[in-house]
Design a protein around this nucleic acid. Structure first.
Lengths: 342, 342
DNA sequence: GGGGCAAGTGGTAGCGCTACCATTCGGAGC
DNA sequence: GCTCCGAATGGTAGCGCTACCACTTGCCCC
């Protein structure tokens, strides 16, 4: 006694239903869907008709199992709410929206261990590509990436030793540029304020320090940081700390724009004139920086473009045309605004 | 001639490798992994040892195919960069990080058509649950949700007719509360400024209108909206438009906090005193509202909690304990601040 | 005019896992 | 002592798809 079909499947049409209806073999349907060029015009039309008629949608799980490759991009970012990564992710989504690839997004919470765990999980799906934020993976993570058997793109930063490919920019140079700008604008007692000091923030700080030392302006008491997650209100508090520690402060380079905004608000509240008494430079150049009053000088980074480029490189690699340049530096731009126009 | 194993598989250990090593049947391994209670202590230990030894990780695709159910939560939001949805998504991620469920995140770009397309794609995976933003699905989307064969949670809003479950709050009431507050604070020529007027913004506007009409203060020229995506700089522009149209404006209820911040900055720039000349109320209560100078009155919404609750309800439904309350209203809170303290 | 070759099509045999149904075995119940 | 039952385990047969290898044409080339 044989139950005819769909004992478990829930009765959705399968590829054989389509094949039967179109009067062809199942493989031909499979091919028509994946490599239309290899199927004759005629059959393609018949098959398409059958597909439309039955409302057939291929089962991605069966597909992944049979081909040992899932049409999934694994994406690992340290935060979902940080606008910076949200923009990168948006770039990735927009670039993949017309492709068959799905996206598996993971949140590492800035934790190397969490990253390892997620890479393990993602790897078990045999993804088509992996995009990970940062270049400071643990050695375990690095090994997982190297053995993933798919293109890997590290994003947000550039560095000397890519697992596979990289798209980003130099955070040291960003920190350097911001600090040089403050010095050129005439500021001398320039503080660094930073929250959630992840490796990228550390490098911005390193850039700041290089420039300050070279100018003979460095003083460790100018630096105010915390591992706490960044926010506008934290920016305000850190600025107050910095000022208490160093009342002669005349400028600040902030870790990011949230902090910069917090500094600006505190200046308003305490009637500290910006840019006369204090100059402010942010990092990332969120939309609101140009609207703020006074508008805030910031380092514009190309987050959305990083996402797009990462996908483009991964897709190229998947189709066998691995790009010449394994490391792409998208740079950044200093946006001079009122907050440093002394 | 038989090639022994892993013709395509890439040589990763499979469940039969584990079974052989542990000296048990493959099913027993499967059970030990999924329902440990049904396997004896003894075998469980042996199996665990074999798993650890081989570094076995189950293949989620094979699992999904065999069980006709993927361990995936499909999540559909209209924007990835809007902090409001980012917070909801973060709540969802945090709630699922210790579960076997993966997350498939889709970006509908506020488009009903895009939502339909994504529901189609997500549905083809047989997800364990679906979480979608909003309650205004197209009839096609609604049908797809109803036939998804899994728990469905609509989030961000409450309404009378859930597909399955709902977690959110009433945007009409939010708009009403914000407007009432402005009137109570002594403002009369109260404008509404809104960007990207999605259904939720429309309902906030409806709440505003109800209250204004009831108070005999309504005037259509008080309303300034645009379908353009919201941003701080757009808030500034819209406020200028509103003021040009209606110079006697003495208060604004903003669609969201970005717009409110743009209004505040423009007030600074134009030396319009807040709250004396203009009162400002935002919506969502982002962290920066309380730091702004002057701090901005806003309607605090519980985005993160909405994400967590949605997952909790879905998980309960999956395990067969569908919650009594199908519609959960998490409410909101008016945060009175300096921007309306006349 | 026969071999060679490419294009088009199909059959078979899995991919790695779990649903479904045995099967075994020890102990409770009469 | 026998039946009955539940707990523990295993075998078989797929889930829906694609890799791999035929096989059939038609046509070009020498």
């Amino acid at each position: 006694m044989i139950k005819p079909r769909s004992r478990r499947g829930g009765g959705r049409p399968t590829i054989s239903d389509v094949a039967r209806k179109a009067g062809v073999g199942a493989i031909t349907v499979s091919r028509a869907l994946r490599e239309p060029a290899r199927v004759s015009e005629e059959l393609r039309r018949q098959i398409q008709a059958a597909v439309d008629d039955l409302g057939y949608v291929p089962d991605p799980n069966a597909r992944a199992l049979a081909s040992a490759r899932a049409e999934v991009f694994g994406v690992l970012v340290p935060s979902l709410t940080n606008n910076v990564f949200a923009e990168v992710v948006r770039g990735i989504y927009d670039s993949l929206s017309d492709s068959p690839f799905r996206i598996q997004l993971g949140n590492t919470h800035y934790s190397g261990l969490e990253e390892e765990r997620l890479l393990q999980v993602f790897g078990s799906q045999r993804p088509a590509a992996l995009i990970v934020a940062g270049i400071d993976q643990t050695s375990t993570s690095r090994k997982l990436l190297e053995n993933a058997g798919c293109p890997v793109v590290q994003v947000m930063e550039t560095g000397p030793d890519p697992v596979d490919m990289m798209v980003g920019f130099s955070h040291i140079d960003g920190g350097r540029t911001a600090t040089e700008h403050l010095i050129e604008a005439g500021y001398r007692r320039i503080g660094f304020i930073g929250a959630r000091m992840d490796p990228r923030s550390q490098r911005r700080l390193a850039g700041y320090r290089l420039v300050m030392e070279k100018a003979g302006l460095f003083d460790p008491r100018l630096i105010t940081t915390t591992p706490v997650l960044s926010s506008v209100s934290l920016g305000r508090e850190l600025f107050r700390d910095a000022l208490a520690k160093m009342p002669t402060l005349d400028g600040v380079f902030c870790n990011n724009d949230d902090i910069a905004l917090g500094v600006l608000f505190e200046c308003h509240r305490a009637s500290i004139h910006v840019p006369k008494t204090i100059g402010i430079v942010g990092f990332n150049d969120l939309d609101m920086m140009q609207v703020a009053f006074p508008s805030i000088t910031s380092i514009r980074t190309h987050r959305y473009e990083i996402g797009r480029r990462a996908v483009a490189m991964a897709l190229a690699a998947i189709s066998g045309h691995r790009p010449q340049e394994r490391v792409v530096d998208l740079g950044f731009e200093l946006k001079r605004r009122e907050s440093t126009a002394r």
